[in-house]
């Protein structure tokens, strides 16, 4: 087993005492050897980073070359709102400085560059890749690169808009163990890529599918068609978004009521993150990443949705049958 023969230090045992009691010393050792890449430093990802730095991953690499603006720290507690501090620095650099402080045992560093230009060798350095605030095509490309490597990389895409959040998970061919009563049983799950998951025809999806799934796809398509960057929509776009929804529903043979206009309106009106939702989504994502690194416990397959309006946190399995 991974990590055998290497004991946790007394310092680690003292610091991680309460969580070792949740997931065990073996999982803690695996965590301390895991390398995590995150792309796109908004509030939700900031929450996630805090969670896994506290949990004690081996290293965390941040990428986000955007320079800090007022808007950038709306939901991000890692960026000090002092212009003297943030001016001229990138979001990744600012977040890195704060995160380092949370846990001296975790190496936090910054890489520069656009998600699309990173090559296979770059991705091969990581065990977990989390992408956010980027176009659908950039997400798909990064997901494909992760899948090309012989080593299995856990891939996550995450975004929050207003009171809603979404997590996509691709663990490829994933083996793990779970406790069932007093027994430990081995499980095996096969995940589709982002491309494959999104190409499942809507008419094939179960009737009780989360409305948020469709709504997020409509907005995503709208941004793509209009050449917008992620999150760059406003109430002025509502009529365009509703028109696109009609078209997509017709093309996919989905009853339009499955994608409520009110929900779309909410998502375009305020694209900025709502901090409590960042905390919820960043928390669930942190937990999922910890599960996949330690190969313990049922992971989400393969979407998670949360809407603060109804308070439900729902798992949907969207893969072709």
């Amino acid at each position: 087993m991974d990590g055998d023969g290497e004991e946790l230090t007394a310092q680690e045992t003292a610091l991680y005492d309460r969580q070792i009691r949740v997931w065990g010393a073996d999982a803690q050792r695996r965590l301390s050897k895991a390398h995590v890449l995150v792309y796109g430093m908004k509030g939700t990802v900031a929450e996630f980073c805090k969670n896994i730095v506290l949990a004690g991953v081996g290293s965390l690499t941040l990428v986000d070359d955007r320079v800090a603006t007022e808007e950038a720290f709306a939901a991000n507690f890692l960026i000090p709102p002092d212009e003297n501090v943030y001016s001229g620095k990138t979001l990744a650099e600012l977040c890195c400085n704060s995160l380092k402080d949370f846990n001296p045992m975790v190496r936090v560093s910054v890489e520069r560059g656009d998600l699309s230009i990173f090559d296979l060798e770059f991705f091969s350095k990581f065990d977990v890749v989390v992408v956010s605030c980027c176009s659908l095509s950039a997400k798909k490309l990064a997901n494909d690169k992760c899948r090309k490597l012989s080593k299995r990389i856990a891939f996550y895409a995450v975004d929050c808009r207003d009171s809603c959040g979404e997590i996509f998970v691709d663990l490829q061919d994933y083996k793990y163990s779970k406790k069932k009563r007093d027994e430990t049983i081995e499980c095996d799950l096969k995940y589709p890529s982002l491309e494959d998951a999104l190409s499942v025809p809507w008419s094939e999806l179960p009737r009780r599918m989360s409305k948020l799934y469709f709504a997020m796809r409509v907005i995503e398509k709208f941004e793509e068609a209009e050449g917008r960057s992620a999150g760059e929509v406003s109430i002025a776009d509502l009529s365009g978004v509703l028109k696109l929804k009609k078209e997509l529903c017709t093309a996919q043979a989905l009853n339009e009521s499955r994608v409520p206009d009110a929900l779309l309106e909410r998502l375009v009106t305020n694209a900025t993150e709502f901090p409590p939702v960042c905390a919820v989504i960043g928390g669930i994502l942190g937990q999922e990443v910890i599960k996949s690194i330690s190969a313990k416990g049922d992971p989400v397959k393969n979407f998670f949705f949360f809407d603060a309006f109804d308070g439900k946190g729902i798992i949907e399995d969207i893969s072709s049958k």
């Binding site: 309460r18 969580q19 997931w23 969670n51 506290l54 942190g286 937990q287």
Partner: peptide, 10 residues
């Protein structure tokens, strides 16, 4: 008591 950051955040 067993405690982790993620649950508290949620």
């Amino acid at each position: 008591v067993h405690a982790v950051a993620t649950t508290n955040a949620v």
